[in-house]
C-alpha cells in the first residue's frame, strides 16, 4: 500500500537555541508533482529542507519522505532522495566523470549500472561534453548541472533542490527551468526558491513560507485568485497623467472613494497608483476629472494581481497577520 503523497510533513518544528527557525509546519507533496517552496531569505526554507534530507533532526514533529520517517529510517530516506544543497558544494580537484562515479559508489550502484546512469544523467543535464573536465574549471552553470546530475544519479523518487537557479545567468536559468520541468512526472520535486517567476513557470503547487510558518499554499492560479480576493475590498488603478504635479495629486486624492494615492513617477508626466473602494467608479471619476481640468490622460489600467504582489503582501511583516 503506497501513499499518494511522496512527502508528508506534520507539525515540523526546528529550534536553534531560543530561535524558532521552523514553526509547526505541515504540508504534503503529491507523487510526481513539482512543488515550489517559496519564501524570503531566512524564512526557514533551507532548515526545512535540511530536516527532510536528514541533515539535521527536527526539534519536534514528523516528516515522511517516500514512505520513510526522516528520523527513524534516515538511511532509507537518504537512499530515496536526490538533494542539491544551496551553492552546490563539490570537489574542485576531481573530474566530472570521476565525481559522478564516486557519488554512484556512495549510493551502492554497481559498476555497470553506474556507467549507464552516468551517461544517462550527463545527457539529461547537458553535461556530456564536460565529463573529462575538472570540476573546479566548470562555470557556475555547469556546476549547477553537475549538482542536479548528482541528485538524479540513483534515479530517486524524490528530488529536493535548494535554490537551483541562484547565480546563473538568464539563459542558464532558462535551461535549468527546462530541465526541472522535464523532471516532473518522473520524480517528485520540491524546489526551494525566492524567485517568483520561477514558481509560476515550473511548479504545479506553491507553498509560501515566512518566518518559519506556512503563509499560503495552493496552485499558482489559486494563489493569484486569493490575492485578487484579498485585494477585492480595494481596487488598484495605475494612472498616467500629464499635468501640473501638485494639482493632479491633490485633485485625485480629493475624489470620493479614493483611499490612498501612491506616486510612482513624478514630473510633467505622473504615474500614480490609486487605491480606493471598488464601488466608487474610480475610473469614470478620474477620466472625468482629467478632462474637466484639461490635462492629458496617457494611460489607465487596473493593476492585475500577480503572484509577486501576493508574495510581498503576505510575507511583509506588517500585513502578514491579516493574510495568515
Amino acid at each position: 500500500m503506497q501513499h499518494a503523497a511522496e512527502i508528508v510533513v506534520q507539525r515540523l518544528t526546528k529550534d536553534y537555541g531560543r530561535f524558532r527557525a521552523v514553526d509547526n509546519i505541515s504540508f504534503e507533496v503529491a507523487r510526481g508533482s513539482v512543488v515550489g517552496f517559496l519564501g524570503p531569505n531566512g524564512a526557514g526554507k533551507t532548515t526545512t529542507i535540511r530536516m527532510l534530507t536528514c541533515y539535521m533532526p527536527p526539534s519536534s514533529g514528523q516528516a515522511r519522505v517516500a514512505g520513510f520517517d526522516v528520523f527513524g529510517q534516515s538511511l532509507q530516506v537518504r537512499q530515496n532522495i536526490g538533494y542539491l544543497p544551496e551553492n552546490t558544494p563539490l570537489y574542485p580537484e576531481m573530474r566530472v566523470e570521476e565525481y559522478l562515479d564516486y557519488r554512484g559508489k556512495l549510493r551502492g550502484i554497481n559498476r555497470t549500472a553506474r556507467r549507464q546512469r552516468i551517461a544517462d544523467v550527463a545527457q539529461r543535464c547537458w553535461l556530456t561534453d564536460r565529463l573529462r573536465w575538472l570540476v573546479g574549471k566548470l562555470s557556475k552553470g555547469y556546476r549547477q548541472r553537475l549538482g542536479i546530475a548528482d541528485a538524479l544519479l540513483h534515479n530517486p523518487p524524490v528530488l529536493v533542490l535548494d535554490e537551483p537557479t541562484v547565480g546563473l545567468d538568464p539563459s542558464q536559468i532558462r535551461e535549468a527551468r527546462k530541465l526541472i520541468a522535464e523532471l516532473a512526472g518522473r520524480h517528485t520535486v520540491l524546489l526551494s526558491t525566492h524567485i517568483l517567476s520561477e514558481v509560476e513557470l515550473v511548479c504545479q503547487r506553491v507553498i509560501i513560507i515566512g518566518r518559519g510558518k506556512i503563509l499560503a499554499q495552493g496552485t499558482p492560479d489559486e494563489l493569484k485568485q486569493q490575492c485578487a480576493r484579498a485585494g477585492a475590498a480595494g481596487a488598484r488603478l495605475l494612472v498616467e497623467v500629464r499635468g501640473p504635479s501638485d494639482q493632479v495629486l491633490s485633485a485625485v486624492k480629493a475624489l470620493p472613494g479614493v483611499e490612498k494615492v501612491q506616486v510612482l513617477t513624478d514630473g510633467p508626466v505622473q504615474s500614480l497608483a490609486v487605491m480606493g473602494r471598488l464601488d466608487a467608479q474610480l475610473r469614470e471619476q478620474i477620466a472625468a476629472l482629467v478632462v474637466q481640468r484639461g490635462w492629458a490622460l496617457r494611460e489607465m489600467r487596473v493593476g492585475g494581481a500577480t503572484l509577486e504582489e501576493y508574495f510581498v503582501q503576505i510575507t511583509d511583516p506588517g500585513t502578514s497577520q491579516a493574510a495568515a
Binding site: 534530507t53 541533515y55 537518504r78 538533494y83 558544494p89 556512495l106
Partner: peptide, 14 residues
C-alpha cells in the same frame, strides 16, 4: 568549510 559535509551526510552513508 566548503559545505560538502551536507552532501556527504545526506548520502546514504553511516
Amino acid at each position: 568549510r566548503s559545505g560538502r559535509i551536507e552532501v556527504l551526510r545526506t548520502s546514504p552513508l553511516a
